[in-house]
Design a protein around this nucleic acid. Structure first.
Lengths: 225, 225
DNA sequence: CACTGCCTACCGACCGGTAGGTAGCACTGG
DNA sequence: CCAGTGCTACCTACCGGTCGGTAGGCAGTG
């Protein structure tokens, strides 16, 4: 095929399998989705699917790792160099809410929902990756608290409160509902990260410390539904 | 039955079935728990179990309704007559966190986790019961906002933020971990419900309006696992 | 006798997973 | 140029086991 050496697949096929499986598992749950259904959705037979993966559990593990990759790239990486801890948390919150509401990454939703499905070493591996995010938030809250920018709440409680608010969104958000992603982000930022009174749109006014690293993300896809 | 009224069971057997099934489903998920396992845990055969219930879905529905009953009795009822909206939210938050952390009501955890498992009319029925709680919180936040006691965030966003913080706890709380239920409650109250600086222990100081209705529940079981 | 509460024994469907075969391609030696 | 070899990407057919659910019986109690 294509003598210049392209080879169209090279793991690309594998990634579409992960995405297809993620879509189904996100809709019906891990235990509620059969390998048969996943194979059919990939337009394959079950045996064909098993040519690419080892077993169902490893498939879930791969999906979750893929989801963690996406998360770290879209939420963590863009903000980790922001100097002001409160601004860091604000931007982080916005990115995280966007990730959950955009509905583009079913893998992330699966990580959230199937938090107790994996066991043993794979479970611990994913938990370690999650824990890194918790630590990141704890540090930011501790920083902010030390600088007197936020009331001194236990950083762990603060971090999990942040996470709860933001991640719970996947349970109730409707893309065509009354609330837009921006309204939710603005509201939640206002609730636990005081500061700027008009936080949306022009984020360029307040962060005197880290004017770089502003995310371009907006303006792309994101149709209602 | 039995005109003198005794009849040892009278639905008591049914309730222990619900509780046993809830324990298993809470641990392994709805789809991951077989009727065989539930029957065995009730020290019955599967056919024996089916003598008491109609089918698996109806069993889940019954568990969820039972959970909503417990929730309304332990969280909603004790606080709904508190006049000050912020104090109402504070007490509500504490009761709700207690319900989730005490681990006594697996049914409530199932309601949280299996939010998309039921379909059709049963699903809508449970959703309607949940919606009542959301409305209760929205009203409280709107009240507080109108009285200038809280910053004016959209009441729906505020309500779901409250819920996210509080309910997400089921995903990470460890009874024998560093954080106690009280520390979590104090921290979360401090984060979104400003006011009293030492809020724990004596809840008798703030509610000038409804000194009754305080729950006795405490002091019983609740070992650190 | 009727009824409750539970049993044994079984149903068809489906589960995750595999054995073994094959079509199509790239590469090689002659 | 082309047969042979090896490999990838699938397939059909099947495995033992389990799923949710049921028919029908039977012992105990009123």
């Amino acid at each position: 095929m294509t003598p210049t050496g392209r080879k169209p697949d090279e793991g690309e096929r594998y990634r579409t399998i992960l995405e297809t499986a993620a879509r189904l598992i996100c809709e019906r749950g891990y235990e509620g989705t059969s390998m048969q259904e996943i194979a059919a959705a990939c337009r394959m037979t079950k045996a064909g699917l098993y040519h690419h993966i080892q077993n169902k559990e490893q498939l879930l593990f791969a999906i979750m790792n893929y989801g963690m990759d996406v998360f770290e790239e879209q939420v963590l990486a863009p903000v980790q160099d922001v100097v002001d801890p409160v601004e860091r948390l604000r931007q982080c919150m916005r990115h995280n809410i966007h990730l959950v509401t955009s509905g583009r990454s079913k893998e992330v939703i699966i990580i959230l929902h199937e938090h107790a499905t994996l066991t043993g070493e794979p479970r611990e591996f994913i938990d370690r990756r999650k824990k890194r995010y918790v630590r990141f938030l704890e540090d930011a809250f501790a920083d902010a608290s030390r600088q007197g920018l936020l009331p001194g709440v236990d950083p762990t409680v603060a971090a999990f409160s942040f996470l709860g608010m933001v991640l719970w969104v996947y349970k109730w958000f409707k893309p065509d509902g009354r609330l837009t992603e921006e309204q939710i982000a603005d509201g939640m930022v206002a609730m636990i990260l005081p500061g700027l009174s008009t936080p949306a749109a022009s984020t360029t006014d307040a962060n005197a410390s880290a004017p770089l690293r502003m995310v371009p993300r907006a303006a792309s896809g994101e149709e209602p539904q």
